[in-house]
Simulated scan of single mutants.
Amino acid sequence: MEPYYSEDGIRIYHGDCRDVIPRLDVEQFDLVLTDPPYSGRTHDGARTNREGDRQRPFIKFASMTGAEVASVFELCAVRLRSWLISFVDWRHMLLLESTPPSGLRFVRFGIWDKPNGTPQISGDRPAMGWEAIAILHRQGGRMVWNGGGHRAVWSSLRESNVVHRTQKPLRLIKQLAAEFTQPGDLILDPFMGSGTTLRAAKDVGCRAIGIELDERYCEAAANRLRQGVLF
């Protein structure tokens, strides 16, 4: 299986992660750090830019059920050495906690606090202002990380100049990558999007594999990786 991009320990594969993961020529991943699609209800509720009395959908790619997300996590767990950290729909979080994917144990419900989060368009209720981060670990292994007593709350501003609709801040992903890996570790992102996890891995001295279904984002990620290390 030929990668879409490969350089300096970073590889991109174009395809469905459910097909690609079993075919990867690696023994283990040290960390899975990813951001899968959210539920249909969340996607449908994300609207922007009023057009008269109508609003346009903000997210146009397909949603996933909690069971579908869990099935991908089970594929990852087969060769996972330690942590799986994922931004998730809070509805998916409930399933991951009550019924952890095979090979994984649920450790903590984390939070990304967004100080500049989108205000509530209707103005008739408080805005969300946060996203859930699922923190899981492979079964049977000792939990080790670099965050000490840090709470499972990470505060980071949303970026305005983004390639992907749900792109996470590079600063935030770099912090997560640094806290849950050692230099030289291998990070997997099965829902790569515009490549923020791979960009972060490169900047903190890790190897990485990203998988993305939409070829446009494979190219966008490759272009980001061709830049120098960002400090």
Rank of each mutant, 00 (worst) to 15 (best):
T181K: 00
A67C: 07
E159V: 12
G9K: 01
V144C: 07
D30Y: 10
R224A: 12
T166N: 13
G184T: 05
M1E: 11
V72Q: 00
A67Q: 15
L225Q: 00
R151I: 01
T166F: 09
S102K: 15
G66H: 09
D189Q: 12
A177F: 02
L84P: 09
L188R: 03
P190A: 03
L170C: 11
C76V: 02
I209T: 11
D16H: 02
G210C: 12
V153M: 03
R151V: 01
Y5G: 00
L94K: 11
P100M: 08
Y5K: 01
V26R: 06
I135P: 01
R56H: 07
R125G: 05
A77C: 07
L172W: 09
V88C: 03
D35S: 15
L230F: 08
G140D: 09
F73V: 04
G129V: 09
I12A: 03
D113Q: 06
M192R: 10
K60M: 12
R79S: 10
W154P: 04
W154D: 06
A201F: 03
A222D: 02
L94A: 14
A178I: 03
H14V: 08
M192F: 08
V20M: 11
G40N: 10
R171L: 11
R199W: 04
R151A: 03
P3H: 01
H92C: 05
V32L: 08
F87S: 12
D203M: 10
G149E: 11
Q175K: 15
K114E: 14
H14A: 13
L136D: 06
R91T: 14
V32K: 04
L157T: 09
A152H: 06
W112L: 01
G193M: 12
G9H: 02
V78L: 10
L24G: 11
G210P: 11
Y13A: 07
W112P: 00
H14E: 15
A222S: 03
P3W: 01
T166D: 14
T181Q: 00
L157S: 11
S122P: 00
E131L: 10
L136K: 06
D185V: 05
G149C: 04
A132M: 08
R158L: 15
R207N: 14
I133S: 05
V20R: 08
E27L: 07
L176H: 03
E212M: 05
A221D: 04
D25A: 12
G129N: 13
L172R: 10
L176N: 02
G40I: 07
R125P: 04
V144W: 10
V229G: 06
R56Q: 12
K202N: 00
E68S: 10
T197M: 10
C218R: 02
R171Y: 07
H43Y: 14
P57E: 13
T196C: 09
V107Y: 11
C17P: 02
S160R: 14
S102R: 14
A62R: 14
A222L: 02
W145G: 01
A77K: 02
T166G: 11
D189P: 11
G228E: 15
P190N: 02
F191L: 05
D44Y: 06
L176V: 04
A177S: 09
W130M: 10
A132S: 15
G228K: 13
D35Q: 04
H137M: 13
W112R: 01
A178D: 14
H137F: 09
L157D: 15
D89H: 05
W90C: 13
Y217D: 03
G184S: 07
D35W: 02
